[in-house]
């Protein structure tokens, strides 16, 4: 058991037909460790994570979660004509439902959730992924203790929440799904420093509870406090892997990625 990594990506390539976004990504996440992804905007981090959670199909390569293959193996079927409806002939190579129910939970970037549902209803949907895996009890209480703001807003519709509250709700939903591995894609995107700290504290608490994370963020110092391994992501490839011990500061990373010009 201990030799099987939690998540393993082997030669994973993918993108949005016909544009390839990332290629040949190899990544191993051991049990009980958290991983950071760092890289410039528009270089395919979000696309990679969307592929891992099955929202879009991988083109080739394997996604192994706790030793179980999540995608149908093999190369994608090529579209030889624009005039045929290939959706009918090609089966989806991944099913996001199965990924979520296996315990790989993805909190999407800038998640808008369900505009017209109340906070209570939204939280009520979250445990579905945890059911059937024999996860202990309901985690809603715990999530609400972590985000006390949400309990004041239970009967409000999601569209009336502020950006920060919506982000908290997204993370809370991810937590309630009892993740074996939780993907957080830029959870602090566009938040004020105060809300950012609040959310960062909550994420710390989630990690302290033993939930492994994959976290994307633009702030290396924030990542540093959370993760064991940092992957640098650049032009659709993993360009470096740094352990926590020799993790550089924000400036050094900028230098590594962009050269001296930006420092």
């Amino acid at each position: 058991m201990s030799t099987v990594p939690l998540l393993e990506l082997q030669h994973l390539s993918g993108g949005y037909e016909p544009v390839q976004i990332f290629r040949d990504v190899d990544l191993v996440i051991a049990h009980g460790t958290s991983t950071g992804l760092f890289g410039p905007n528009g270089h395919g981090k979000t696309t990679l994570l969307r592929t891992v959670s099955g929202v879009i199909d991988p083109w080739s390569g394997n996604i192994l979660f706790e030793g179980k293959q999540l995608n149908r193996p093999g190369e994608r079927g090529r579209r030889r004509s624009r005039n045929l409806n290939y959706d009918v002939f090609t089966r989806r190579r991944m099913n996001p439902k199965n990924v979520a129910r296996a315990g790989l939970i993805h909190v999407a970037q800038g998640n808008l959730l369900y505009r017209e549902l109340t906070v209570r209803e939204t939280l009520g949907i979250a445990p579905i992924a945890a059911r059937g895996r024999g996860e202990p009890g309901d985690l809603t209480e715990k999530a609400l203790r972590l985000f006390p703001r949400l309990s004041e807003r239970m009967n409000q519709k999601v569209r009336f929440l502020s950006g920060g509250e919506r982000q908290m709700l997204s993370v809370a939903c991810g937590l309630i799904a009892a993740p074996r591995l939780l993907i957080l894609d830029e959870p602090t995107l566009g938040l004020s420093p105060k809300l950012r700290r609040e959310l960062a504290d909550a994420i710390q608490a989630i990690k302290a509870d033993g939930v492994p994370l994959i976290i994307v963020d633009q702030d290396v110092d924030f990542l540093k406090s959370l993760i064991e391994t940092l992957y640098l992501f650049d032009h659709g490839r993993i360009s470096g892997r740094i352990e926590r011990a020799d993790m550089p500061s924000h400036e050094e990373i900028m230098r590594m990625l962009f050269g001296e010009v930006h420092s």
């Binding site: 929202v55 996001p96 999407a108 808008l112 505009r115 017209e116 549902l117 209803e121 992924a129």
Partner: peptide
Amino acid sequence: RAVAQNREAAELMG
């Protein structure tokens, strides 16, 4: 209702 409003978020929630 959730699927109607945000299909992708619903898929990610299983």
